[in-house]
């Protein structure tokens, strides 16, 4: 992928520092000993303008919670989300309103993310209506324009979501997300629910839109091959923390965190001879509960390299190579 060089500069669009989102899962009879599910537990992340930042990790590692916290569907427990000179983490709902239009989201399930009682025109015009842009007529014109952009046509405007296929619905969802010309679009497993052939179409469309509109994507997925294709940089999450973040090629060619290596080893190999070879990096065991987290390094229970040091001390996210940060005591 070749992005325009000037987009490559390191201007940070969104700076996330020590972001935490804990959910209270139980409390004693009188509220003592509350237990918390630490879905996101101290994430540092810079999203640069114009890039596609991929975010991968197993189910339940907090990817979606992170996305929903960044877009303030959840209020963060702690931390900073710096965006356009404001700290979104601290803003109240009504002060958040002007920033809402700059961050939009494409959801995983195109069947659940569109209100079945509204037609396509109303669905796509809704963000415009809420932002108070234009009148009824100009909004309809904009909807027709957006439908063309995402590869549908204006005859579809009066139809209802249930009349469309999954891929078409996702296109409607994308049209809705870009209606306000946002700066950041968060794609939360945006293509996981689609057929493989449709996935490619939608991903290509997302790339075209990025070029045309100068969008920045946070692309969350568990599909390692798709994220390699679309991302400029990739972050790997494990149990609510970022364990490694690196430019696309660096991560795939030289994974430094044992978890990243294990993830990459889990990609199915088409060659049966290769596949039969014993793989050192294969992970053992189940992901621990985010309620009772292991001490020290969270990955130590499944890590082939784990030592006593890992149980005592939590590794920090250190920059080991250019733009390549890893949180492991034994990474080099």
């Amino acid at each position: 992928m070749d992005k325009q060089p000037h987009m490559r500069d390191d201007e940070v669009l969104m700076r996330v520092r020590d972001l935490k989102k804990h959910f209270q899962v139980s409390a004693g009879f009188f509220g003592q000993n509350p237990k918390f599910l630490k879905a996101v537990d101290g994430v540092d992340l810079d999203i640069r303008r114009g890039e596609t930042l991929g975010l991968v990790g197993e189910s339940g590692c907090g990817k979606s919670t992170l996305a929903r916290t960044l877009i303030r569907l959840y209020s963060p427990t702690d931390g900073v989300i710096e965006f356009n000179g404001a700290d979104l983490a601290k803003l109240k709902e009504k002060d958040l309103a002007p920033h809402r239009r700059d961050i939009q989201m494409i959801f995983q399930d195109p069947y659940a993310s569109l209100n079945g009682r509204m037609n396509v025109r109303d669905l796509i015009a809704e963000p415009l209506e809420i932002a108070g842009i234009g009148n009824d007529k100009s909004r309809t014109a904009r909807v027709h324009e957006l439908l063309e952009v995402v590869g549908l046509n204006k005859d579809h405007a009066n139809r209802f979501p249930h009349e469309f296929s999954g891929g078409q619905r996702q296109r409607i969802g994308i049209a809705r997300a870009i209606a306000l010309n946002p700066q950041l679009v968060i794609c939360d497993e945006a293509i996981s629910a689609l057929d493989v052939s449709i996935q490619a179409q939608v991903v290509n469309m997302l790339e075209d839109l990025q070029k045309e509109l100068g969008l920045t994507y946070l692309f969350i997925t568990h599909d390692l091959s798709m994220v390699k294709h679309i991302s400029d940089r990739i972050g790997v999450m494990y149990l609510g923390k970022l364990v490694e973040i690196a430019p696309n090629n660096a991560l795939y060619d030289d994974p430094k965190h044992p978890y990243t290596r294990a993830l990459l080893a889990s990609i199915p190999i088409a060659d049966p001879v290769e596949a039969r070879k014993d793989n050192q990096d294969q992970m053992q065991g189940e992901i621990p509960s985010p309620i009772d987290m292991p001490s020290g390094c969270r990955f130590r229970t499944r890590c082939p390299l784990a030592t006593d040091l890992c149980a005592e001390q939590e590794p920090e996210l250190k920059e080991l190579a250019d733009n390549h940060k890893v949180a492991c005591h034994y990474a080099e």
Binding site: R68, I71, L73, L96, A97, R100, R101, I103, Q104, M105, F107, Q108, D109, A112, S113, L114, N115, E126, P127, I130, A131, G173, R176, L180
Partner: peptide, 13 residues
């Protein structure tokens, strides 16, 4: 908890 409600919230509804 449906996604379309979340979508409306992200629009600032």
């Amino acid at each position: 908890n449906q996604d379309y409600v979340a979508a409306a919230k992200t629009m600032g509804a």
